[in-house]
Write a protein that binds this DNA or RNA. Structure first.
Lengths: 119, 119
DNA sequence: CTGCTGAATTGATGATCATCTAATCAACGA
DNA sequence: TCGTTGATTAGATGATCATCAATTCAGCAG
């Protein structure tokens, strides 16, 4: 059972489920920032499209899936990027985005509920 | 209290990780609503305090842990309630809150990342 | 160089939100 | 009944946000 490591640093050490221990102010502030990034319908779907793309996806393939303007998509992508949820790279004319699973894992763990079989 | 009619939806089909499939507009809207409830530092810490209380906790024990007014805490508790994350009951003079793990599990699954070992 | 295309940035605007004070509600005890 | 205490609701306000049109930036091809 290889435990996948968390190479991304800026994420505060956290990983204790909230059902196990209450968050302090700092952790709550950091967590709220990341949740805020997912707290918009466009952004959440955007995140899911990038996450489910199986690798990376071009902005040009993402934008047509929404009813909002290009600049708005660009703005939302920036929010996701600043939340550490995705990263991107320009290659030629196009820009490609991919998910950063560490952040997702962190949030998932934070919200996880102990299974009944557990102590 | 726990009797009042809340806009709690059937917790849409629950539980395909966003890394497995992109969300449709409806699921994204519903998910964003719940994430929005956790997207505030006060509310996230509030949620963690309730979740980690090991059962239920009195509002009177929660409020003193924050620097904001009582009505503000009450407002945040209402948001958590309407998001289906907590429920409450009045007993005598006091009101007790407890977490609703189903919602947490739902979010946790939504954000879960397949382990490297799994195929 | 110039022109074209995809993406990001700027600036403005209408909407939503977090917070407060004041008022109201709910339960209890004198 | 009336006060008192704990909690919620109502209303107001300043801040933040989502969105767009216009502009700018980055890369490529004549």
């Amino acid at each position: 059972m290889s435990k996948q490591q968390l190479p991304i640093e800026p994420v505060g050490g956290c990983c204790v489920p909230i059902m196990d221990a209450a968050l302090d102010n700092a952790a709550a502030a950091e967590g709220a920032t990341v949740f805020k990034a997912l707290a918009d319908p466009v952004r959440l779907r955007l995140m899911s499209i990038i996450a489910s793309a199986g690798g990376e996806i071009c902005v040009c393939d993402v934008t047509p899936q929404f009813d909002v303007s290009g600049p708005t998509i660009s703005h939302h992508l920036k929010v996701l990027r600043e939340a550490g949820l995705v990263d991107c790279e320009r290659r030629g004319t196009w820009v490609y985005y991919w998910p950063l699973p560490e952040r997702l894992t962190w949030l998932s763990t934070l919200l996880s509920v102990p299974t009944p079989s557990a102590v």
